[in-house]
Amino acid sequence: MAASPTPRPKLPEAPGNPAAAALAGLQLPLPLAVAYSGGADSTVLLLAAARRWPGQVQAIHVHHGLQEAADAFEAHCRSTCADLGIPLQVRHVHAGHAPGESPEEMARVARYQALANGAREAGLQAVLLAQHADDQVETLLLALSRGAGLPGLAAMPPVFQREGMVFVRPLLLLSAQAIRAWLGEQGIAFVEDPSNADTAFTRNRIRHVLLPALEECFPQYRETFARSSRHAAQAQELLETVAEEDLARMGGTPAITALQRLPRARQGNALRHWLRKAHAASASAAQLEELLDQVADCTTRGHRIRIKVGAGFVQRQGERLQYEAGPAA
């Protein structure tokens, strides 16, 4: 006699999950993954996604190994997913960084690579990320503190592609307070990352010092800041369209004479777009101004242009600009 199949664990009812409304209207390619750290935000998202798309959701946990609690985080995720009957994939990464590189940025890059690879290997079509409204405000304030342009002020997009995978942030209008309040009411366990309390990190200082002050002075700041970020994103999209049209008229790469016919701001827009899209390079404000000055002064065949940008150089090759990256530079 054949053994009876093991019954699938039933998800808790847990009514009122604030993430459920955010997912209700989404039409996403299935099956999909939730980036599950074990923290409050990803816990709420995982529970809501598993109810929204039964049997179509998996969890991916990225183990960075950057702190002593990492093994405990993994154990919690394994236990929770086993209890809920949600398939879990654990990806171990080693996010080393070179001198001068940000360890946080390198960890972020490694995390996205791990999530994309894990989802692709499991045949999944998208990855849900649990960043929320407070994370969006923190990102915007960080961008302002660095004098960022429109791409920075646009903060985090709700949908984007990276490493060949679709990533979706459905909780960008949901506050951290609403998430934690609901988990507390339901008695649902989650892990606390001890590094989140370390105010040596700028993002944590914003979270613990600036956000409470904003809450007191401007109670609607999450909504208004999000609106400003959306405006910035729309403006940036328009600028990218203009840059693509300008470069297309030049044959795809910057032509010096054609650039000189454009207003200076439009020249800068085309050059930034070309560097970012074609070469994954980002010019600082000073580098771009120097490059624009050199383009303006380039009136003779012998005028030489060679300016450091990112890991390489922008230089003149005949009547065009080219980017030479890496060791060859």
Results as ranks from 00 to 15, higher is better:
His273Met: 00
Gln317Asp: 08
Pro99Ile: 13
Pro29His: 06
Phe160Gly: 13
Ile307Tyr: 08
Leu291Cys: 04
Pro263Met: 13
Arg230Gln: 15
His92Trp: 06
Ala148Asn: 05
Asp198Ile: 05
Arg227Val: 05
Ala59Met: 04
Phe218His: 10
Ala22Glu: 14
Arg162Asn: 14
Leu174Arg: 07
Ala48Phe: 13
Glu105Trp: 15
Tyr112Gln: 09
Thr300Ile: 10
Leu275Ile: 02
Arg304Trp: 11
Ala35Ser: 12
Glu289Pro: 00
Gln67Ile: 02
Leu141Glu: 03
Lys277Gly: 00
Glu74Lys: 08
Ile256Pro: 00
Asp83Arg: 15
Ala114Pro: 02
Gly164His: 13
Ala213Asn: 01
Ala325Met: 02
Gly152Val: 06
Ala21Asn: 01
Gln186Ala: 14
Leu28Gln: 09
Arg266Gln: 15
Ala329Gln: 13
Ala270Gly: 07
Ser175Val: 02
Trp53Met: 00
Gln294Phe: 08
Asp246Lys: 05
Ala126Glu: 12
Ala148Cys: 10
Asp135Ala: 08
Ser284Glu: 04
Asp198Ser: 12
Gln260Glu: 06
Glu104Val: 07
Leu45Arg: 04
Leu26Cys: 06
Arg205Gly: 07
Thr299Ser: 08
Asp83Thr: 04
Ala181Arg: 15
Phe313Trp: 09
Glu121Gly: 03
Gln67Thr: 02
Val309Thr: 08
Met250His: 13
Arg203Ile: 03
Ala95Asp: 03
Leu141Arg: 01
Ala178Pro: 06
